[in-house]
């Protein structure tokens, strides 16, 4: 009983670490703020743990996780009308939107993780361009390097990110098709 629980706990932690960030970013697309998004994702995981005896640990959990977070987010918006961020009032339960948000949230969480793997200089250059919208020439001047070096670092960054995310960029959410019915 106890060792069984330990194994479950390990599976549970793995599930949590794998999906937590993406689920939070996903909820944030509906709620607008990260704190309530985290609360909702936590509540979904607590629920899984409370029902661990009945939970199917061998089935891919991703569809369940995202649908649960989605449903709870919509309930949260309904119950806290005044917190509805601009632009999300029309959230209608559209499947296309759900799929897009899921895909983007997962991609964002992977990119966040992958960015940490870039060499320092490379990341700096990449972030100056992508986050701050600086031109190559501006970055070169700012860091006192040549434009050619900026080019090299940029393509290096893109190459590393692409490699880190290679399993991910070509998969188009096949699993979701099976779960549309439960929305």
């Amino acid at each position: 009983m106890n060792s069984n629980n330990t194994i479950l706990k390990q599976k549970f932690e793995k599930l949590f670490r794998e999906h937590f960030t993406a689920l939070c970013y996903f909820a944030q697309k509906y709620l607008g703020d990260i704190d309530s998004s985290k609360e909702i994702v936590h509540s979904v995981f607590i629920k899984i743990w409370e029902n661990r005896a009945e939970f199917d640990w061998d089935k891919p959990a991703k569809p369940y996780l995202f649908t649960s977070v989605y449903n709870r987010s919509l309930n949260y918006i309904r119950d806290n009308k005044k917190f509805v961020p601009a632009g999300t009032e029309g959230t209608s339960g559209d499947i296309g939107e759900f799929r897009d948000n899921l895909e983007i949230a997962e991609l964002e969480s992977r990119i966040k993780r992958a960015l940490k793997k870039l060499p320092e200089k490379c990341r700096e250059v990449f972030e100056l361009n992508r986050f701050e919208g600086k031109k190559y020439s501006e970055i070169a001047e700012h860091l006192n390097i040549s434009v050619k070096t900026v080019e090299t670092q940029m393509s290096k960054a893109l190459g590393i990110l692409k490699n880190e995310l290679k399993d991910y960029l070509y998969i188009f959410m096949l699993f979701l098709l099976k779960n549309i019915g439960s929305l």
Binding site: F16, R17, F20, Q28, I34, H42, E108, I111, R130, F131
Partner: peptide
């Protein structure tokens, strides 16, 4: 695939960093 990566990478700067160790401890 590259274009998708490129577009998404521009958006992550506005997202909060999430510390998985802290969050796991909380859970």
């Amino acid at each position: 695939a590259f274009a998708k990566l490129w577009n998404a990478s521009g958006q992550v700067s506005t997202l909060s960093n999430i510390n998985l160790d802290t969050e796991w401890k909380r859970l």
